[in-house]
Simulated scan of single mutants.
Amino acid sequence: MTLTATRPTSPPASAANAIRVCVVDDAVVVRGMVTRWVNEEDGIELVGSYRNGQVAVEKAPQDKPHVIVLDIEMPEMDGLTALPLLLKACPGVKIVMASTLTRRNAEISLKALSLGAADYVPKPETNSGVSTSSDFRRELIEKIRALGAAAAGRPQARVPFSTPPSAKPGAAAARPATAAPSPGLAPAGGAGEPIKHRSFSRIRPTALVIGSSTGGPPALAKLLGTLSSDIWKRMPVLITQHMPATFTAILAEHLTRAARIPAAEAENGEPIVPGRIYVAPGGKHMIVAGTRAAPKIRLTDDAPVHFCKPAVDPLFQSAATVWNSAVLGVVLTGMGCDGANGSVSIADAGGTILAQDKESSVVWGMPGAVAQSGASAALMTVEEIGRKINSLAMGALA
């Protein structure tokens, strides 16, 4: 069996318990289209539609939204100016920035995330593109559901997890004798059931792989900023963040400043060496090829995994094949279940998986799926994960 990405179904909700949404965009066509999409969904209700940031700041507090979809480029008051005002006026609201795929808008979107926006969604360049893009509609509604549930303090829809067989391509075939014994793969998905963790690897890690999505860029910057200088001498860092092209190049620039070592979009065929951060480029899957002694990057144009490209599973599964018990994997905040199958592959190979805890995650989808799979050694805050990486990299046994 494989981990199947299916759209969670939600029972019809009354106006009293629906996820409340506002849309802020100067384009009438966009506002009308998003309004129709939201109103066609069970459990979601549009409560406000505004033509610019100024109107939103004035009216949104009365509408009490859980989620605001906020355009970047608008007259009178743009999205970046309105963002902090809306966060102050509507405590607890989750804001999704909407922008076309330009370098300028990518910069603004990442800045917005650092200022408190929960996520972003790439918008087609034309109004006609908005109306015909099924991908834009799917991604927007999925993010509204996930973030709205978090804002309302409700359980988030969980995609069912099933453990992949060891014969699956890219997965490790067996746990090596050097690895600590596993407590098993019983899922921890039931309410009130304790999460079953794996033991930490007894092998000092020589590579760090990280997967993240919603809320990931600020979490990545914080995590990399906590790592000691000794880390970079000992291991490379490979990151898959769910992002489109253009955005990943900007993300790499931001991570260079946070980590104080070079970070860049990975290039096909380049060697993987300590002291560098490799970011999966938008629109490509990044996998580890070569041998443990001479690993290298391979970029593929394979089909999306869990609707994502790049996806975390191909990176983690290939890392388990090449580095076995010497790989350390981290799954940070994000919606969906990408990374769970790959985490099982790393754990089965004898490596260690750390997942972000629910309380500190913007959305506990990806790390929650990892916890449900039984692959994680621990659930931690970003700061705790950083300290644990420092400890493990220096040879400390958990």
Score class of each variant (00 low, 15 high):
E107S: 02
L87G: 07
V130E: 10
E142C: 04
I95Y: 07
P122E: 03
A152M: 13
T102A: 05
T132D: 08
C90K: 06
E139F: 12
A82Q: 03
R103T: 14
G116V: 12
R145M: 06
T100G: 09
S109C: 13
D71A: 03
K111I: 05
Q156C: 10
R158T: 13
P91E: 03
V121Y: 02
P124L: 08
P155K: 04
G148S: 11
T100S: 14
R103I: 09
A112S: 13
V121L: 06
S133G: 08
E125C: 02
A82H: 02
A118R: 05
M74C: 02
L101K: 01
D135Y: 01
S134W: 01
L113V: 10
Y120C: 11
L115W: 10
M77K: 12
A149T: 13
V96N: 05
L70T: 03
M74W: 05
K123N: 06
L70R: 03
K94V: 08
V96G: 08
L147W: 07
P75H: 01
M74P: 05
T100L: 04
L147M: 07
G148T: 12
S133F: 04
G116D: 10
L86I: 09
A89P: 11
T81V: 13
V69F: 12
K94E: 14
E125T: 13
L101Y: 00
I144A: 05
G92V: 10
L70Y: 04
A157N: 06
L140E: 05
S133I: 09
A150P: 01
R138I: 08
P155Q: 06
G92P: 11
L80R: 02
S109H: 01
M74F: 01
E76A: 12
I144D: 06
V159F: 00
L101A: 14
L83D: 06
G79V: 03
M97D: 04
P124H: 07
R138G: 00
P122Y: 00
S134Y: 05
T81S: 14
P155A: 05
